[in-house]
Design a protein around this nucleic acid. Structure first.
Length: 416
RNA sequence: GCGGGUGUAGCUCAGUUGGUUAGAGCACCGGAUUGUGGAUCCGGGGGUCGGGGGUUCAAGUCCCCUCAUCCGCCCCA
């Protein structure tokens, strides 16, 4: 049977040790910044994503795994994280419980699209969200935490792109200005961009089609049409990023795929990766999202970052977060009559926190020793024979090539 | 969702104009070695040839469909 939702299990992404280490380092990093873990369901009512991401967004219109439950209600596997977190925060009354609500998650996301390198039907996002804070230092914090995490795990060649996509107060007027401009050049736009003209005109600015390049270059951009509030917020964001030493570039044509963004939008790209998968993290502010769900007006800002792409980025720069673990010890039996005793001793050592190998099936002693050496085990403990009859085991240091006999109770201090 | 490349052992791959029982290297297991090292030598287990259908006396090989994977789009992390 094949995987229903391939998750990129080919190396280097499926490197168990690095995977675990990345998650551990992320949790440690964001906990130090005051974020708390939140777990939300993998499946939600389809309505949630329709109302938040937007009916016309690609994610909702063609990329969701949607099905009916036994009661005929439409469910979807979550395609992104923010909507679920907002729903949970709203449902459990957290939005009313104070300020400074900061959550993080590490969770699988699902999108029914054509898999490629760095793009999978199931991928895992590291994410976080701050609720109820409107100050641009909150936006700057989110960006700085993401950028800082990437730097901390050793990534280089990072670019932070920021933009403001305006607010419901100033975006509609800009949208009309942009639309008017684009329509005068509509006949020269690429087919894709002519389609975007109808669905999401701001997306034309993001076009990679060379035919659109000169038209896009002359197009009006949102940051020249911000109202006073959005302008002040964008200026405040830049000042805050400078204050914490996060380098950034303003990209007036940066547009995000979901409808719910307001003011800040950002992406972090890694220049050692190619094409679309350079984007290893992105996010922004979505002040209207909780209100769209029927809750109180609740400002929010956050990001999502795909673990698989981060691991590809690390790999492209020759960075390994962790080497595969080798067991510390192996308990070997000299003959089969000592096998059960060896098993019992291995379990004692494991209970004491020492990773210990043991061969479940009968094998010759020499084979056991070979296997231990090959696995990179440091200490072999020999059970059986004359020493065992005297109540002792042989402790063998495979690296130093030394050995001595001792009582089993004296093992643990020698192994730690 | 669109266009193209590739699917043979756990991994990397070979397999002739269609022809008998599908191979190699690495890995794994066993023996040489009834109590001491990753080597060496010898031996062994492993395959719905991605899946389904078709053409044929005969299909890993040809045709169709499908699934997966890789690359490029749309779009995204």
């Amino acid at each position: 049977m094949d995987d229903v939702l391939p998750v990129g299990f080919s190396s280097p992404v499926y490197d168990s040790a690095s995977w675990v280490e990345l998650r551990r380092r992320y949790a440690e990093w964001v906990e130090a910044h005051g974020y708390r873990y939140i777990e939300t369901p993998v499946v939600e009512y389809t309505e949630l994503f329709r109302r938040t991401a937007g009916e016309t967004s690609d994610i909702v219109s063609k990329e969701m795994y949607t099905f009916e439950d036994a009661g005929g209600r439409s469910l979807s596997l979550r395609p992104e994280g923010s909507a679920s977190v907002c729903r949970a925060v709203l449902e459990h009354g957290l939005a009313a419980s104070g300020t400074g609500l900061k959550f993080y998650y590490v969770a699988p996301m699902f999108r029914a699209e054509r898999p490629q390198r760095g793009r999978y039907r199931q991928h895992t996002q590291l994410g976080l969200e701050i609720f109820k804070e409107t100050d641009p230092t909150a936006d700057a914090e989110v960006i700085a935490v993401l950028h800082g995490f990437f730097r901390r795990i050793g990534l280089d060649q990072l670019t932070v792109h920021i933009n403001s996509v305006g607010s419901p107060a100033c975006r509609p007027a800009y949208r009309e200005t942009l639309l008017a401009y684009l329509r005068t050049h509509a006949d020269r736009l690429s087919e894709d961009s002519q389609r975007r003209l109808e669905t999401n005109p701001m997306r034309v600015l993001d076009s990679k089609d060379p035919r659109d390049a000169d038209i896009v270059a002359g197009a009006p951009v949102m940051i020249d049409h911000l109202d006073d509030e959005c302008r002040a917020h964008f200026d405040g964001l830049q000042a805050a990023l400078r204050a914490v030493g996060v380098p950034f570039t303003i990209n007036p044509r940066l547009v995000r795929g979901l409808d719910y963004y307001a003011k800040t939008a950002f992406e972090v790209t890694c220049e050692s990766l190619d094409g679309a998968i350079k984007v290893i993290g992105g996010g922004g502010r979505y002040d209207g999202l909780i209100e769209q769900l029927g809750g109180p007006a609740t400002p929010a800002v956050g990001f999502g970052s795909g673990i698989e792409r981060v691991l590809l980025a690390l790999e492209s720069q020759g960075i390994r977060l962790a080497e595969p673990r080798a067991p510390r010890a192996a308990v070997l039996y000299l003959d089969d009559s000592a096998r059960t005793d060896a098993f019992a001793l291995a379990m004692r050592l494991r209970a004491a926190g020492i990773e210990t190998d043991y061969s479940y099936k009968p094998r010759g002693f020499s084979k056991q020793l070979q296997a231990a050496a090959k696995a990179g085990v440091r200490f072999a403990i020999l059970v059986g024979g004359d020493e065992w009859a005297r109540g002792e085991v042989v402790l063998k240091d495979l690296r130093e090539r030394t050995q001595d006999a001792l009582h089993p109770d004296a093992l643990i201090p020698r192994l730690t």
